[in-house]
Amino acid sequence: MSKIGQAISEIQSLETISKEDRRVNRIHPLSKLILTVFYIAVTVSFHKYDLPGLIGMAVYPAAVFMIADLSFREALRRLRVVLPLVMVMGILNPFFDRKIVLMVGALPVSGGVLSMLTLMIKAVLTVLAGYLFIATTPIEEICRALRIIHIPKTFVVVVLLIYRYITVLLSEARRITQAYQLRAPGQKGVHYKVWGSLVGQMLLRSMDRANDIYDSMQLRGFDGDLRTGEKKALTPLDFLWPLLWGAVIVLLRIFPVVELLGGLFV
């Protein structure tokens, strides 16, 4: 499969998982959104040398991966582009902060190394939490949650359209590169001289397409507000889920749980 085809099928498979009928998927999107934001905020708030504390925070993604029966390996594969990017953030820290703050056996660990590690872990945990939210919540539901917390409807509709537009753009890109490859057999990739015209083509076509889609929405009474029916009654899980996790997260933040647990075994 071409790279573009791969990208499309990945977006689509993520969409499929988010729609599967699992318990976690059924929880109210707003509960999950609030929980995710809270988790991210707390994760980011850990001190830059607090490695054990952060390791404890991995409990949440680990548990949700299990409860929701999502494949961790799949997640890593999907995030293979994003993860390295967010992880390089702390890469220079070891050069700036050389003070030794910890001894692991005979190995001295500088503040820079430690803060690089915590930053990397923070980044990974944050991305994973976001991934879990998206993988368990269909886009319409995410938009609904945004609407409930009074994010302006124009903004929410734009989010939805961009999401749709990405697939549209990728499909056009696939069509055009396929047409190109058929007429330029044996050529590896796309010759740089035609990049400009291919990209131009792609933008024009996808603009036409986006225009049609917008027309199609309008012809069916779209007035700028996205209505997604399902106003199911709230279930206890809608409250319990964020509350329980909220409590766990607070505990992990306040008490050095990992160190305490470690203490039990030594």
Binding site: E15, I139, R164, S216, G221
Partner: peptide
Amino acid sequence: REKIGYVFQDSDSQLFMTTVGEDVAFAPRN
């Protein structure tokens, strides 16, 4: 527009929700 239904030549321009049911529900909900 409530009285006329228009079916696009290219279905990919017409359908934009995620599932068939959602897409069919789009107009009545609006």
